[in-house]
Design a protein around this nucleic acid. Structure first.
Lengths: 155, 155
DNA sequence: TATTGTTATACTCTATAACTATA
DNA sequence: TATAGTTATAGAGTATAACAATA
């Protein structure tokens, strides 16, 4: 596939200068594991953005489409479409707001909750298998690192 | 935004059962950091799939559109479009294959190489800043964890 | 008059099917 | 006849602008 005349050495700047590569190596590993985790899906084949709405509702409870759009960083018309798609799949329910008739309340259905749980279960299962291939000492290292990574993730 | 009647407790299965949550916590942290890394872009505003083609060419050298499609898990017509877009931006060059006139050779231009380098530089910079906020001991822990995560990523 | 959500329309990315050129 | 790539066309997902209903 690759033609022999055009192969250049994959020289990263960090390695060329001899500078520390922990950040770079960590970035590559993190990115690759995240991609493999994303590939583990639940029952329903959802786009990542649609699944994101489910997790947000799972975490924060029912929200208006506008609030969801803010939270997911999309525009309101896009969220209208996303919510309608999820409603057609029976994963969310659109309800009237109790006092403000302009608003719509988007609520996760039981199927929606189940989809979030199942997807997380499969992703955790994949990662758990990988952890089981490590020694107890290595798992301790990763447990300690998890605390640090969590701090970084929320920084 | 959230209406008070519909908030349910965010009870994950792992926590409810008291089972170990390292895998789950690690997954959450990994996913979140990866998302924040992806948000660090280079000069040109490229979709993640388009940038993926640049990194593949950066790593493996010039390839045919078909080989790129295989590598990136998209269909050939999609890769044709992607490559044409990248070529219009001056990030890749389409060349004739030396012996097989059916084939096209897609080569990363100097601007393409620079885009890959710059994007990686910004992502490494973001992560380096986060690492600098840790103690030396914590950095040692993450350095050790990086080796393990790299192994997992490639498993 | 401001806010919430939707409809109308368009652009991007992806796909399948059909076509062209070459091996 | 098989292979590499493209063109034609369609389906998601997202965007901006314009509109409807309600506060």
């Amino acid at each position: 596939m690759t033609i022999d005349t055009a192969c250049q050495p994959p020289a990263s700047n960090a390695r060329r200068t001899g500078a520390p590569t922990v950040a770079s190596d960590l970035r590559v590993a993190l990115t690759r594991i995240a991609r493999r985790l994303r590939a583990q899906r639940g029952e329903v084949d959802l786009a990542e953005g649609q699944f994101g709405v489910l997790t947000t509702l799972h975490k924060h409870g029912a929200m208006s489409p506008g609030a969801l759009a803010d939270h997911e960083n999309v525009r309101p018309p896009s969220m209208t479409r996303t919510v309608n798609t999820l409603a057609e799949h029976g994963l969310v329910t659109k309800l009237e707001h109790p006092t403000d008739k302009r608003q719509v309340v988007v609520e996760l259905s039981e199927a929606g909750h189940a989809e979030v749980r199942e997807t997380r279960r499969r992703r955790d299962q994949w990662l758990t298998k990988r952890l089981q291939e490590l020694t107890p000492e290595e798992r301790d290292t990763l447990a300690a690192a998890t605390k640090l990574l969590t701090r970084i993730a929320n920084a």
